[in-house]
């Protein structure tokens, strides 16, 4: 298999916790095409799954829906960009923060993991039909 240096792949998923395994499968499939070490691939899959989980938990507050979210993974000249698009409640960036890491209690770790793994996390208003557009970026050395 030839490792790719440029990638742009996207897929839709029903907004549901049951979709998270499919989100991971998609992410793993994409990163299999890139020559980066397995530890980094695992971290990126975790960051993507945590962001998708946040859409299910927060943008949709765990409600059942037929809505889909879209995830787009792009790699260009060592710049990895992962876009998340959803039609849930608008995300107020001020409310997106992880709990203090030494305040040990269940919950609030997903955002911390994303910030640990990625270089930048940017929230944007989605262009129609989307409401939210989250962008995670990371410089990849390969």
């Amino acid at each position: 298999m030839v490792a790719l240096r440029q990638i742009s792949e996207q897929r839709d998923f029903v907004v549901s916790s049951a979709s998270l395994k499919d989100v991971r499968s998609f992410s793993r499939e994409v990163f299999e095409k890139v020559n980066i070490d397995q530890d980094l691939k695992d971290e990126l899959v975790l960051a993507i799954a945590e962001a998708a989980q946040n859409i299910v938990k927060h943008a949709y507050q765990g409600e059942d829906t037929d809505d889909k979210m879209e995830i787009k993974i792009s790699l260009n000249n060592g710049e990895l960009e992962i876009g998340f698009f959803d039609k849930g409640r608008p995300v107020d960036e001020k409310n997106v923060r992880h709990r203090k890491i030494d305040d040990v209690k269940p919950g609030g770790l997903g955002t911390f993991f994303i910030q640990q793994i990625m270089d930048a996390v940017v929230f944007k208003e989605g262009e129609k039909p989307w409401i939210n557009h989250l962008i995670l970026t990371k410089k990849i050395n390969y």
Binding site: L46, E50, Q53, P106, G107, L109, F112
Partner: peptide, 13 residues
């Protein structure tokens, strides 16, 4: 083989 923040929450709880 895989655990996310929700799984970690179960361990903490």
């Amino acid at each position: 083989q895989y655990m996310d923040s929700s799984g970690i929450s179960v361990l903490i709880e």
